[in-house]
């Protein structure tokens, strides 16, 4: 049966069902127990599963990341919550030099089935050190999968698949999505990693949008439809491995493309997507240069108006689509 859930509820349901099905799934993180997580995602899980499997940790990002790695190496399936994606900078050595490399470095003799969940993105007035979208850093690391769902349904199915994946997954949850609602099947289900989804079909222009940019792209598409412009919205959902085929198929169809992502524009996820288009035969289908809409080249500012200006908004997507149509 399918019913409406918020994105946060969908993540929680995935955690609960994974823990019910597999006693090896344990949760680690700062304030995930009694407090329920900084964004309330793990609310109620301590009560249901107890402190043995829902572990409130000290503020020790390096240790708890390594803790998840060691547990994963020896038979558990830990899910680590890193309270804000900005704090992942404190996890880097363990995540990038250990988790990502162990399987390869050990000649395939070990696996690290861990999930690192983390809320990302601007829009909450949390300013420069609590608003980052750093997913591109991890897309650059062979050995990490990077998943960034944009809907409650995707969040649940992709999280269940990530937990069962034998390899480390960085699972990016945009903070502004937590309260968004949508249909979510009640039973456990997995959505395959590495598979994009066309969120809206269209014929005039392709908008490839990631994570929190997907709802903005869809809202822009609604507005443009009123002007008679048919926009196709593609959500990669997994950033590494990236489903290039689905993106290229859409570009071949529409001949115009806007790539929208919240991380800093330079060398962001959209840079890779644009490069893959340029490297492929889809290039010959382009009727206009690719437009990239990324985050501004500055830290996320505190002031509401400045913060809005630092990140692509619905209006920016509308303008960008008009730009590629006019070219």
């Amino acid at each position: 049966m399918t019913r409406e859930l918020s994105y946060a509820e969908a993540v929680r349901e995935a955690l609960r069902q994974a823990m019910e099905q597999d006693p090896g799934v344990v949760l680690l993180g700062e304030d995930i127990g009694t407090y329920g997580g900084a964004f309330g995602v793990t609310d109620g899980l301590l009560e249901q599963f107890g402190p043995e499997r829902v572990r409130d940790t000290p503020i020790s990002e390096a240790a708890i990341t390594g803790c998840a790695i060691g547990a994963a190496l020896t038979g558990l399936r830990p899910v680590l919550e890193v309270q804000f994606m900005d704090f992942i900078t404190l996890c880097m050595e363990q995540l990038v030099l250990q988790a990502a490399k162990i399987r390869y470095m050990f000649g395939g003799k070990a696996q690290v089935p861990l999930v690192l969940r983390t809320p990302a993105g601007a829009g909450t007035g949390a300013a420069a050190q609590h608003s980052e979208s750093l997913e591109a850093w991890f897309v650059h690391v062979p050995g990490l999968k990077v998943v960034a769902p944009s809907t409650p349904r995707d969040a649940k199915g992709l999280l269940l698949a990530s937990i069962r994946d034998p390899n480390p997954v960085v699972f990016v949850e945009h903070k502004l999505l937590y309260r968004t609602r949508g249909p979510v099947p009640e039973e456990p289900y997995e959505l395959p990693l590495g598979r994009a989804e066309v969120k809206r079909e269209g014929t005039d222009v392709t908008v490839v949008a990631t994570s929190g940019m997907v709802p903005r792209a869809l809202a822009a598409a609604d507005r443009l439809a009123e002007e008679g412009v048919s926009v196709e919205v593609v959500d990669p959902r997994t950033l590494r491995p990236l489903d290039t085929d689905t993106i290229l198929a859409s570009v071949r169809k529409t001949g115009r493309v806007v790539v929208v992502y919240e991380g800093v524009k330079t060398l962001g996820v959209g840079a890779e997507i644009a490069a893959r288009i340029a490297e492929s035969d889809a290039l010959y289908h382009l009727q206009a240069p690719v437009v990239r809409l990324g985050g501004a080249e500055c830290p996320i500012p505190y002031n509401r108006n400045l913060e809005r200006a630092a990140v692509p908004q619905e209006e920016d997507v509308v303008q960008a689509v008009r730009q590629v149509l006019a070219a």
């Binding site: 090896g24 499997r53 240790a63 998840a68 060691g70 547990a71 558990l76 830990p78 363990q94 030099l97």
Partner: peptide, 23 residues
């Protein structure tokens, strides 16, 4: 569970092995 090229790199991992043993 491995030698390590990073000074102190195995210490956080050891806590997780301990956690796994405990669980």
């Amino acid at each position: 569970l491995g030698a390590n090229g990073i000074v102190g790199g195995g210490l956080p991992i050891a806590t997780g092995v301990g956690l796994s043993i405990q669980v």
